[in-house]
Design a protein around this nucleic acid. Structure first.
Length: 300
DNA sequence: AAGAGGTTCAACCGCAGCTGA
DNA sequence: TTCAGCTGCGGTTGAACCTCT
């Protein structure tokens, strides 16, 4: 497909400053030729100073456009494609901590771009919230992530005998991460979160909430990003009530899974998380029931 | 086979912050 | 101190692709 020349956006838009310097600014998808020009130029002169890159490389693109193309697509260590379970876990955890600070989250995922993480969040995570009929920033959804989603991810990561099996399927062969700490960051987060989760899980079934588990979600942290997030005690009280007295797992009415709280395609809606396995294993009746109890509890 | 509707993701935009003259 | 230019960020858009009927 041919890229447009001043045809991608609004015709009446005012030209931005860097556009003013280039006549006949090209917009739209990049061609192989343009990619080649940009890669060759950066290989020789290095990146940065993107306006001069655009000019000197002979590209009729804005500096911004060149920068974006390089960072999101052309740079040698960029990795695109399937987000691994560990990366999913990292994104969930870091988003709960930083919110929509995509570039900050991307710093913890070597080779991933802020754009890709943002797209992942919007297309996958927000979709789940929508299908659960709750806001992605709501307590319900955060708790669902916290008590069901993340633990399940951890289980799956741990259950994978060959760690390479949870790596993305399409990792660039030119990847070379010189920062060893960054290289291990996903595993570190999975490991530490796992430890915290198990600590939390054993405690919460005994005596209620554990503020140490993802405190940014519990509201215990002073720098909590979302003031509406309440302490975990409500949820765990609800959990204990349902589990131990007020209609626990043994009393679970399977008909609840089709009660209307969740759409009929609830299981399917979480499919992306499983990485290919049957959802029957991933989102069984117990998990669905648990989520339903959270929502019921929150409604009280 | 074809069209409709849904999903994905590359690329754009506006804005804010930084830097140097 | 001010201002212009540049860079980076987050939100949004729309073409391409996929799935369903």
């Amino acid at each position: 497909m041919e890229a447009n020349v001043r045809g991608f956006g609004s015709a009446n838009q005012q030209l931005s400053d860097d556009e003013m310097m280039i006549t006949d600014v090209r917009k739209g998808p990049w061609t192989l030729e343009e990619d080649s020009l940009l890669m060759n130029y950066v290989a020789i002169h290095g990146d940065g100073r993107w306006n001069s890159v655009a000019r000197c490389a002979g590209l009729k693109r804005t500096g911004k456009s060149c920068r974006l193309r390089w960072l999101n697509y052309l740079r040698p260590d960029v990795r695109r494609g399937n987000i691994s379970l560990q990366e999913q876990l990292t994104i969930l955890e870091l988003h709960s901590r930083f919110g929509n600070r995509w570039s900050k989250i991307a710093q913890h995922l070597p080779g991933r771009t802020d754009n890709e993480i943002k797209n992942y969040w919007r297309t996958r995570v927000q979709k789940q919230a929508k299908q659960l009929k709750c806001d992605v920033n709501s307590k319900q959804f955060r708790d669902a992530m916290r008590y069901v989603w993340i633990p399940r991810l951890l289980e799956r990561i741990r259950a994978t005998p060959d760690s390479s099996a949870v790596q993305p399927l399409s990792v660039s062969t030119t990847n070379s991460y010189t920062d060893s700490s960054s290289n291990n960051h996903n595993t570190d987060i999975a490991s530490s979160t796992s430890q915290v989760y198990h600590h939390h899980h054993s405690r919460m079934t005994e005596s209620g909430s554990d503020p140490n588990f993802m405190p940014e979600l519990s509201g215990a942290s002073s720098d909590s990003l979302d003031p509406q997030v309440s302490p975990g005690s409500d949820l765990t009280d609800c959990y204990n009530y349902n589990l131990h007295g007020g209609g626990g797992a043994n009393n679970m009415d399977n008909s609840q899974t089709g009660s209307g709280l969740y759409p009929d395609n609830f299981n399917d809606s979480w499919n992306w998380l499983g990485g290919g396995d049957s959802l029957d294993n991933m989102w069984n009746d117990e998990n669905i029931w648990f989520l339903q109890q959270q929502l019921l509890c929150d409604d009280i």
